[in-house]
Amino acid sequence: MTTEAHNLTVVGTESSKSRRRIISIVSHVILVGASILMLYPLLWMLASTFRPENEIFTSSSLWPSSFSIDSYIRGWNGLRVSFGTFFLNSFIISIVSVIGNVFACSLAAYAFARLEFRGRKFWFALMLMTLMLPYHVTLIPQYVLFLQLGWVDTFLPLLVPKFLAVDAFFIFLMVQFFRGIPRELDEAAMMDGCSAWRIYYKVMLPLSMPVLATAAIFTFLWTWDDFLGPLIYLNDMRSYTVQLGLRTFVDSTGESDFGGMLAMSVLTIVPVFVFFLFFQRLLIEGIATTGMKR
């Protein structure tokens, strides 16, 4: 009886082993196929930028028959203002946004996570409610406000809100992280007579590098990709971001200079791709633990 059962399980594991191997091979085939399908458009775009202009529409292969960087040179100076200016503007806006967001959000998050004051729960609940709010309901009055302040066509409407922690998502992200830091650490510092401010930047911030980095990376990427904000506030081409520059390219020369347009598209993706390569683990962990939308 027992040997019979034993034999049965042995046979079972052997057949299930080979079955498992087949399933795993099939899974790999499906996944590799899906990967190729997913990446093909991106690789094709990259390949197209090195092709002579007349070849773009006739070739769906990934390898250019001849290699040229003309598209990049044409595209870079394809508009009245060069893409160098757009890249500079985008970098300035993105980097200042990162500083503002990390600073302002971590201040608020520290208050919510660690300090005792009346009304804390009330404000925290209000902050959570703004997470769901579509920005459209504040868009028009904000525009009127910034217009009256004379800030339209400057970077200020894009930057000042970051220093006021308007993107509540990052506050929430940091509160979650701060709550995980052992309280003994800041209580010990408090015993030693440290002020809240000192605890914030001597104890909390150094211990929170992972979440600060995640917030910084996502702020950079979202600001870099932001389209609606610059579209509304920046009218002078010299203050355009790369996204606006690309869009103008489509409207003005896109139909005639396809190579140039695709080349500039590739260039605007490069910073995002670099972040992806270097910070992939942080990005994926950030999404897995907080459920970010992108």
Binding site: A108, F117, W123, L126, I140
Partner: peptide, 30 residues
């Protein structure tokens, strides 16, 4: 008791009233 908390919260509070609640009320009126 409450000062430090509100000092840390100040940037967010300014943004909350100046760029979220205020504009929301205005936009509802508009």
């Amino acid at each position: 008791q409450d000062g430090p908390g509100y000092m840390f919260l100040l940037p967010w509070l300014i943004g909350f009233f100046g760029l979220t609640v205020g504009p929301m009320v205005t936009s509802l009126y508009l």
